[in-house]
Simulated assay, not measured.
Amino acid sequence: MSRLNKQTLCAPRDLRARTVERARDATQKATEKANRRRSTPRWMEKALRVGLIALPVIAVGGAGTWAYQTGWFGTLADRATAALIDLTVDAGLEVQEVLVEGRNETDRDAVMAAIQVKRGDPIMKFDPEIARADLERLRWVANATVERRLPDTVFVRLDERRPMALWQRDGKLALIDRDGEVLTERELGRYNNLLQIIGADAPKHAQELLGQLGTVPALYKRVTSASRIGGRRWDLHLSNGVTVRLPESDIGGALQHLAEQEARQSVLDRDIVAVDLRLPDRLVIQTSTAAAQRRRVPEEKI
């Protein structure tokens, strides 16, 4: 077996020198390359890459903007829509019938004017939402439902407002609903059975008053009108000329108290002018002048 001595393991001197020189050259080249790379900021490199990607997108977008501004897209869309509508008509999708449910007070011509559709119109061109909005602008209509029922029917359901009272203002009467909306000022004769309310803010508070009166039906049927006093409370006017002065609060309790007293003593049928209910649990009765005089004159002896 041969022996390896220290001299054999060592590389020749010129070989080591060449290796060191090559390593030095490689290190120098890498340093120069890195320096060149650092001379261009990283953000600029990213910006260049993004720009190359965005350039075609911007070009297409600019063309789209031009087409939009010149109306080219709109014209193309209108032509396509018209062609499609023509196809639906050829397929039998045109209006032949308009069905309306729930119309009692609303004028028929006003309904048709709001719907804006006639026989033979393309049913797919009809817009139910626009028709619904126009119907709900009519005085008598609270809510409306409009549907296209293919192939040829437009269906309308109306929820009309309900008359609540006659509102006297500026010497004239107007019919109002529970929301205080004026329904009409004409042909009011058929609504004479409704309560007449008086006062600028009377429509706003009438629903509450009528609800409380509904709990005392025997008393309610004797009330012909109600006046709003100072924007705070009500005076009731009965058919026999008696005025009932209600409190600002707890109207229901005051009316119940009066109804109980009337059932026991027939207070309202006496020779009185007014009943004041503004004091809790107490009736203050104002008698007529004739009744007061009779009480002051002693009865003649027979």
Rank of each mutant, 00 (worst) to 15 (best):
S2A: 13
A11K: 13
A11D: 09
R16N: 07
T19V: 13
R24S: 04
A34G: 11
E45Q: 15
G51D: 07
L52C: 02
A54P: 01
A59T: 13
V60P: 01
G64T: 09
W66K: 07
A83N: 11
L87E: 12
A91C: 00
L99G: 04
E101K: 11
G102P: 05
N104P: 00
D109W: 08
Q116F: 02
W140G: 00
V141G: 04
N143L: 09
N143V: 06
N143E: 10
A144I: 12
V146D: 04
R149M: 02
L150A: 08
F155G: 01
V156W: 07
R157W: 07
R157G: 04
E160N: 10
R162Q: 14
A165P: 05
W167K: 04
D170P: 01
L173H: 11
I176G: 02
G180C: 06
E181D: 10
L183D: 02
T184D: 06
E185P: 03
L188F: 06
N193W: 06
A200N: 10
A202H: 02
P203E: 01
P203R: 00
H205N: 08
L210S: 06
Q212S: 07
L219K: 03
S225M: 05
N240A: 04
V244A: 08
P247Y: 03
E248A: 13
D250H: 07
L255E: 04
A259D: 15
E260T: 11
A263C: 02
S266L: 11
I272H: 05
A274D: 07
L283H: 06
Q286S: 14
T287F: 12
S288P: 01
A291R: 12
A291Y: 09
R295I: 11
R295V: 12
R296A: 08
E299T: 12
E299F: 02
